[in-house]
Amino acid sequence: MAKIDAEIAAVVRYIFSFAVGIGLIYYFRRYIISFIKSQKLRLFAWTLNRFMTKINKILRKEKETVFRHLDSLCEKLGHPLTVLEVGSGPATNFDYYPRRTEIVCLEPNPYFKSYIEQNAHKHKNISLSRVVQGFAERMDYLEDSSFDAVVCTLVMCSVRDPRQALDEVKRVLKPGGIFIFVEHVAAREGSFVNKIQKMMNPVWKTLCDGCNLTRNTAKYIQNAGFSDVNIVNFQLQWGFRLLTLFIRPSIYGYAIKGTRI
């Protein structure tokens, strides 16, 4: 009888301990969820900071081509550019800006700020005006017609609402200002790669902070109301050809707000 009583007491203690544990988790659930989210953002920033160095080398030709439009604009204006870089990440694009460009970096992940500042310190030829934590879809803290250029590289795949983001890009651009972009996009509808993208997309979005494999970014840009749009299709030249097939389709180009300067 004593043995049975001891076993029952042990079960009761176990159930009580389990209930207390569940209760504590439930009570502190907001703090736990917040901590997990913050650590996920920190890990993503740390990983991308290292990964973007390789991506920058892969995209060097395309970036050098599209960033030349900023050099041309700077020459036409006769003064250093004011540029907004949307979704700047660790700011590896600092390699490509014209001398004395004044840059505002917009980035939703707060853990990228230290990497942005480190990169700015390495590039004495440009000026980092400030780092703003925020999203492309709502930039009401930035004034209308306040930038000569807006830059997006590998960003439009992750914004929640590309139409609203492009409306904001147009709003903050000065008349005659230029929007330049380099993006990976959805493959041709119905193609083998497009089918793979659709299959992979749910998992990819979860792992890569909302990155969307099936977004037709070119169509969004063409329909955004810019006066002059130039888009070039290309294939990202990754290693591991079969493993990266679904993120190869890409575009780069520019769009002008209003009349070209």
Rank of each mutant, 00 (worst) to 15 (best):
V172Y: 07
C208W: 08
L166H: 06
S145A: 12
T206D: 02
D140W: 15
A6N: 10
T65N: 10
M156D: 01
V232G: 00
I261N: 11
L128R: 08
R188W: 07
D148F: 02
M200T: 05
F240G: 01
L41M: 07
L43A: 11
E107I: 09
I33Q: 11
F51P: 05
N56W: 01
K122M: 12
H123N: 07
N49Q: 11
M156S: 00
D140C: 09
L84I: 10
I247F: 08
S127H: 15
Q133R: 05
F35V: 06
F147I: 06
W46P: 01
A186D: 06
R13S: 11
L142V: 08
G258D: 10
M139T: 11
D167E: 14
R99A: 10
V150Y: 01
R100N: 07
C105S: 14
K40N: 07
I178K: 12
F44M: 11
A255F: 08
Q235L: 11
R130A: 00
L73Y: 01
D144R: 15
I126W: 01
V155C: 11
W46N: 03
K54C: 00
D209R: 08
T244R: 13
I25H: 09
L142P: 01
L154N: 13
L243Y: 14
Y252P: 02
T153C: 08
K174I: 12
T47G: 02
I32L: 12
E117Q: 14
D167A: 09
F181S: 09
C74Q: 14
R260A: 06
D140G: 04
E117K: 15
H79M: 12
Y14Q: 09
A224L: 09
N119M: 10
A136E: 04
G89D: 13
E107Y: 14
R29Y: 13
V132K: 04
